[in-house]
Structures are given as C-alpha cells and as structure tokens.
C-alpha cells in the first residue's frame, strides 16, 4: 500500500545504508503477493478503504511470516493504514470491521471526519526528538493498557487521544505520520536501521534538517485535536 508516497520510506532506508557502504535492497511486495519471512525491515504504508481491505486479506495470510521475522530480530515501520492493520481491528467508515494482524494491541475506528494537516510528535524517551509529518486519515486508534505510543502529539491528531502511533523497542514503530516520515526525520530512519545493523555513523542531513525545521515551524500554527 502506498497512497501517500510511503514507498519513500523504503527508499530512504535503502539509500542511508548505501551512503554508508552497507548493502541493502528494496523488495516491493505487490498487493496479493505473499510476504516472505526473510526480510530485515518491513515497511507498510497507507491506503484508501477498499485497497486497505485487500491488503488486510493479503496480510492476514502472511501474518505468521511477519511475526516470525519480527521475533527473529527483523523490524517494522507501519504508517497510517499500515499501523491500523497491525492492530487488532479496524472498523471502516461503512461500518465493516476488518480484522488486523494483532501485532500491536490497538483498535481503530473510522471517525466522523478526516484529520488532515501537519503533525508534530514529541518522541520523549524513544529518543529521536520531535518528529515532523503530515496526516490524512479518519482513524481514531486506542492502544491497550501497557502498549507504548511512539510519542506525544504536540500539533495535529495522531491516534486521536494526544498520542501517536505505537512503539516496541528494537522491533516496531507505528505512526500516523507520512511525508514520508523517514525522509523528514532521518533520526527515526537511523533508529530503525540501527536495530538491524548496530550503531551507525552520522550522515550529512543538511537539507532534511532544514526541511524539518521549516515544517516544525509551519506546524506550530495548527492546533492539537481534542478527543471527540
């Protein structure tokens, strides 16, 4: 799934490895194809309602393979609809409930309006500072007690309760932020990579830093959503 340029996340990961002379290859899995358990990083993006249902069916079949990979040390980035599908259930705008993979204890209901705009998330003890992104979704996601979010929302909606995404240390990052999120936030990209490769030397991220600063500034004018 990649309605919002989310394939860019995979591209960013691959390039950041290549710039450090580390091998990496993007394997694109088309809708309907089985997902292998042999990959090191899994990236799953956003989609419209109907393709999301399709992806859910495809993912459901590949669920055990993904879980096996994560248990074996692979890591996952899930964005927007991808995040929703990793949860336990997703209730679409038409009321249809789509079962998720259950890799994250989170339930999503499509809310009455879309939440669209710049988002700022403070990752707190996850340790990658402020994240900049853009959200466009109707989902309201509730994390089960004990499930850690990626961070606290400073601007925008995120999960809808002042928090965004979900976080499992050295295993999984889920978020409502696209942009793509890893292009805007290189520190998050390197965090994911370092879970697989170990510590990484820094790169020249001048352009990304300038973009991130500009977007964080622009986002300051958008209010935080209240729980509705």
């Amino acid at each position: 799934m990649g309605t919002y340029g989310d394939r860019g996340n995979a591209r960013v990961l691959e390039r950041r490895l290549a710039w450090r002379d580390l091998p990496g290859e993007v394997v694109e899995i088309a809708a309907g194809e089985p997902i292998p358990s042999t990959l090191d990083v899994y990236v799953i993006g956003g989609a419209e309602d109907v393709p999301q249902t399709l992806a859910a069916e495809g993912l459901g079949a590949s669920g055990p393979a993904i879980e096996q990979a994560l248990d074996g040390g692979s890591v996952m980035l899930a964005v927007c609809a991808g995040f929703q599908l990793l949860g336990t259930t997703y209730v679409r705008t038409d009321g249809k409930a789509v079962p998720g993979l259950g890799l994250v204890e989170a339930a999503t209901v499509a809310g009455p309006h879309r939440r669209i705009g710049e988002v700022v998330v403070d990752t707190g003890r996850v340790g990658v500072g402020l994240l900049s992104g853009f959200e466009n979704h109707a989902g309201i996601t509730t994390l089960a007690p004990g499930t850690e979010p990626l961070g606290a929302v400073r601007t925008g909606s995120g999960n809808g309760d002042g928090r965004d995404g979900a976080y499992q240390d050295r295993r999984l990052v889920a978020t409502y932020l696209h942009g793509p999120v890893l292009a805007r936030n290189p520190a998050l990209a390197d965090l994911l990579l370092s879970w697989v490769t170990g510590p990484l030397p820094p790169l020249d991220d001048d352009m990304a830093d300038r973009l991130r600063a500009e977007r964080l500034g622009a986002a300051a004018s958008r209010p935080r959503w209240r729980r509705s």
Binding site: Y4, F134, N136, G179
Partner: peptide, 9 residues
Amino acid sequence: GKDPSWLWD
C-alpha cells in the same frame, strides 16, 4: 494540495 508526500511516487 498541502501534502507533497506524492513526490515519492
């Protein structure tokens, strides 16, 4: 459109 994520497509 306020969201340029599509640049990556």
